[in-house]
Write a protein that binds this DNA or RNA. Structure first.
Lengths: 246, 246
DNA sequence: GACAACTCTCGAACGCTGTGCGAGCGGGTT
DNA sequence: AACCCGCTCGCACAGCGTTCGAGAGTTGTC
């Protein structure tokens, strides 16, 4: 009946440390930490989430696994840092008189691209709250867009959350799907062939789904088809928001 | 340089086994398997995703950890089965002359409820493609709704995917957030207090975000506030879809 | 030049994980 | 009595995240 360790996010813990003046990290620590995070992302991108272990990362960095703990307290912290690093890639056009709809569309595509480029990202996002500096900055810029458009605070929150939820929801699924095929070592055709009997059996008494599946097999769900579907949904969301703009 | 094991989903593998006539599972196997999956879900719901280990599950079932492997090939398979079991709880009203908009809203709330009831679900959904029988049946029923409303195959696919993406995107985030607070062992107030300095520091030079945060602190983001936000976004999505209906 | 302090590395070890293997048990059929 | 079959499980293995403490290398101070 021992109490749980009560994990605290990097951001929270390090903000608390910063309050005590003497606890600053050493000068050379910062570049090394960034370097570790970059290496971790490289492994995550090329070998997948499950391939990232501290020993593997240490080997890539040419150091012992346990040396990493000098720069980073946890693997959890490391992943939080990787998440926020990825969020840094996301662009939000702000200012310059672009209207909210175009700005939001640009943001949505940018967020999607980040999620597709880093298939591990969506899996981790569903793990713990993300309040890193880049994530906050992204939210602030999105808030700015709708603040400039005249929404009140509650509607800004609602609107921004809706857009992000849709993009993460669909892109996470798309990225996972693509990643599953890619890392299976099979071609797209081999993969669908392997899954054909299971799908056919599962849809045996589901005529509507089967009809859609049959009709939509050519062209297969390659990138452009996924992109068209993403754009369709995004237009739906934006139209719905447009109906609520002042 | 050994090749990866090439994991195949339960559904695919067992559909292939079913093709060979003699490979059916024994009669008593089925109830026991369902019982194992139910026990796994119980652990997942009450203790979280990380708490589910084969030994822990075996202990709960009063059997050795390795005995479970008689009924289930993998932990991965077990989780796939748990996912589909959870999908079985989702209701899709079909037939009976309800219009598509109300039917979709009922479905969306039902899906959300399942995701909130099983906080582990969203985390796992971003892990591998979900083609279990309950998931397929759910998709088929959603397809039926929009087929009856007169959409063509492509638009049915696009529309259903959009709704599901939004619901999973927002509910996954909400469930994770709530779960993080709950399992921290802190009250809501204690938790926000603990995160206050980090958020304040992070938002130091983000005035818009800070303004929203300040203004929206009372009432705190309890269940009803999250529900209002969910409904707002759902209305946006449904409005956008409505504009594309024949 | 000497000694202390501080930054950083790392091998050993702990307790945990998923899982393969093979021995063994009880009941049913031949 | 012999045999098979459904099922259980102890043992073992490789790998995981993480702790600890010993030590190396650099820097700072007298």
């Amino acid at each position: 009946m021992t109490a749980k360790p009560q994990y605290i996010s990097v951001w929270v813990r390090e903000a608390a440390e910063r309050a005590r003046p003497a606890a600053e990290k050493p000068g050379r620590g910062q570049p090394s930490r960034a370097q570790i995070v970059r290496a971790a992302i490289e492994i995550l991108d090329t070998e997948g989430l499950d391939a990232l272990s501290m020993r593997r990362l240490g080997a890539k960095l040419g150091m012992g696994a346990t040396s990493i703990y000098w720069y980073v307290a946890n693997k959890t912290d490391l992943l939080d840092l990787a998440i926020d690093e990825a969020f840094g890639e996301i662009a939000v056009p702000v200012g310059g008189g672009i209207d909210w709809r175009e700005a939001t569309a640009v943001f949505a595509h940018s967020l999607r691209r980040a999620l597709m480029r880093h298939p591990w990202l969506a899996r981790l996002l569903g793990g713990r709250p993300n309040i890193g500096p880049n994530a906050l900055r992204m939210s602030d810029r999105m808030a700015t867009i709708f603040d400039d458009a005249g929404l009140d605070h509650e509607d800004i929150d609602f609107t921004v959350t809706t857009v992000i939820a849709y993009v993460i929801g669909i892109s996470g699924a798309d990225a996972t799907w693509r990643d599953t095929v890619n890392t299976s070592g099979l071609t797209y055709d081999e993969w669908t062939e392997q899954h054909e009997p299971a799908l056919r059996a599962g849809m045996a008494d589901l005529p509507r789904l089967r009809a859609i599946y049959e009709k939509r097999r050519l062209p297969p769900d390659t990138g452009s088809a996924l992109e068209a579907r993403f754009d369709f949904g995004l237009r739906c969301v934006l139209d719905g928001i447009a109906g609520r703009m002042p």
